[in-house]
Design a protein around this nucleic acid. Sequence first.
DNA 1: GCGCGTTACGCCCGTCGTAAGCATT
DNA 2: AATGCTTACGACGGGCGTAACGCGC
Lengths: 168, 168
Amino acid sequence: MQTPRRLLPSIGLLSAFEASARTGSFTAAARELNLTQSAISRQIRALEEQLGVELFLRERQTVRLTPAGEAYARDIREALRRISAASLNLRANPFGGTLNLAILPTFGTRWLAPRLPDFLARHPGITINLATRLVEADAAPDVPQSARSRSNFNDRGGGSRRRTYEHD
Amino acid sequence: MQTPRRLLPSIGLLSAFEASARTGSFTAAARELNLTQSAISRQIRALEEQLGVELFLRERQTVRLTPAGEAYARDIREALRRISAASLNLRANPFGGTLNLAILPTFGTRWLAPRLPDFLARHPGITINLATRLVEADAAPDVPQSARSRSNFNDRGGGSRRRTYEHD
DNA sequence: GCGCGTTACGCCCGTCGTAAGCATT
DNA sequence: AATGCTTACGACGGGCGTAACGCGC
């Protein structure tokens, strides 16, 4: 067994904890997540029970992180940030980091070449494999289940629409 | 707005995707997660719809990652690993990674010293700040974020029971 | 026929909001 | 009184298993 995934805290619990840890208040976390403080309170308690560790000190009517909670908050914040970044990046670059193009030489030199640098600048994570074909082909014939589209180089890269891709 | 937490994919979706990506099979992922392949299939589809990106190519009766899926899988795997590690580590070291002790010299040399190595061996992530005091003091007044506890050195470290600690 | 993925149908449990309670300021 | 956390209660919905289907081996 790799990692015991089954006992991972849910995203809801982790988000609630992270927001609470950052703001130092269940109420503030509730506002941020568009939930009630009641929900936050229950989620934090649930997380603590699941982990078997107290994450917050309840004093008076404020809460404060325990040392354990602080360390956990750092890790969780980083993990959530990574998931968020990966998900957003995926929506921005549906190609998966590599884009294979088969084009006609004339098209490449006249139309594509001048636009490439700007495109690459807007999609930093992306690598492009350019292949020039001498004959016109309907996109890439040997690509399984490709969604043909005009992979818009003028697009600002915000869309969730389909794009063409190949794989090796 | 820090990170748009509200639209993060759930742990279930991510776990299902990660297991499927690693095994290359929904059925295998289902076995690993103690779910039905039906559940995995639905989760993957839900994740794809939520992200607006195809993660798997359905061919014949097997599935293959798209390039986008591969990149996403790497990030998700790392994030899940981090959450898992943080959670497990927290259960093992409820003190928050650092344990500040203020003890009497005699106690330190006679009782504590012989037990320290074994304790450190059982709690690999933990760092201990030892301060010897000549007078009996209630914990360490000047140490920020110190966790006083009886920090049971004979304890096997698996419990979910409460522990007492202070904060600054 | 067997194995794998997809889809439809109920059901259950997790999680929410509301609301009441308690303590502190 | 006002604020902040806790807890009880009822309702809604996401996510599950079962089962039936299609499709290659």
